[in-house]
Simulated assay, not measured.
Amino acid sequence: MSLLTARLPFPRPDASTLVSRVISKTESVLPFKLKKNLLEKALNQAFKQPLEDDEFYFLEGQQLGLEVTDLAIRVVISCEDEQLIVCASDTADAWIKGEARDFLILANREQDPDTLFFQRRLLIEGNTELGLAVKNLLDSVDWDEMPSTMRKGIELASRLPL
């Protein structure tokens, strides 16, 4: 075998690496205003009942950051007039951090929030009181009342090799 015909063993990325790259690259080029509009609509639709019941009162005037560490996605949210809003700021009073798979496990109710936090798969940094209030709210939400499109989207995302 000559040098010209020899094949070097280049590592091939697995499916999870490819999906992660596509998601993080796509997220990084989308304009903030588009992400803000889409995310606010989805969040307010998903948490319509808890918002109407004023269960997000603790987030008024506070900023909560969510970071999907393996996808390099960071978003800061707050609550104003019973509506969740996405903030342009990159600073937050508290951060909840974890990998995409663990957030999907939480959303699918495959494990309760306490387990994910105690196993340190999801982390709270900063104002832990705010982070714990969010964790407790997530634990009390009836996920079966979420819009079916939201539930189907979460189920579909869970099948991706992240």
Rank of each mutant, 00 (worst) to 15 (best):
L59K: 05
T91G: 01
D144M: 08
V68N: 00
S16C: 13
E67N: 06
I85K: 15
N37L: 12
M1E: 14
R7F: 13
R120A: 08
C87A: 15
F10M: 09
G153C: 01
F58L: 09
K35L: 11
I77Y: 10
S78P: 01
E80S: 05
D53I: 12
A100T: 01
L30F: 04
W95K: 07
Q62T: 03
E99V: 02
G126K: 11
K135N: 02
T128V: 07
L162D: 05
T149C: 01
L66D: 00
P147R: 06
L132I: 05
S24V: 03
L116I: 06
L130W: 07
L138K: 03
G131N: 01
V19Y: 11
K97L: 10
T115H: 12
R74T: 08
I77T: 12
E129T: 10
G65R: 10
I23G: 05
E125W: 14
D53Y: 14
P147M: 02
E155S: 01
A88K: 14
M1R: 15
S89L: 08
L137G: 10
E52F: 04
T26N: 10
D90G: 08
F118C: 00
G131R: 05
A133H: 04
Q111P: 00
T128E: 01
T17G: 12
C87F: 13
N127F: 11
G131H: 01
A88Q: 15
I23K: 06
G98Y: 03
Q49E: 15
S20K: 09
K152G: 00
L66H: 00
M150V: 11
L122M: 01
T5K: 15
V22I: 15
S78F: 10
D54S: 15
A15V: 07
L160M: 11
M146H: 08
A92C: 04
K35W: 04
I96N: 03
P161Q: 01
I77C: 12
T69K: 10
L130H: 07
F58D: 04
G126R: 13
A94Y: 03
T17P: 06
T69I: 02
T128C: 00
L104D: 05
D81L: 09
I154R: 03
K135Q: 03
L18H: 04
D114Q: 12
P50D: 06
L66G: 00
L156H: 01
S24T: 08
R101S: 12
R21Q: 13
D90N: 11
T149G: 05
L4K: 15
K135H: 05
I73C: 03
S158M: 09
I105C: 10
F56H: 09
A72M: 00
L156R: 08
D142E: 06
T26R: 08
V134G: 00
G98T: 02
N37G: 00
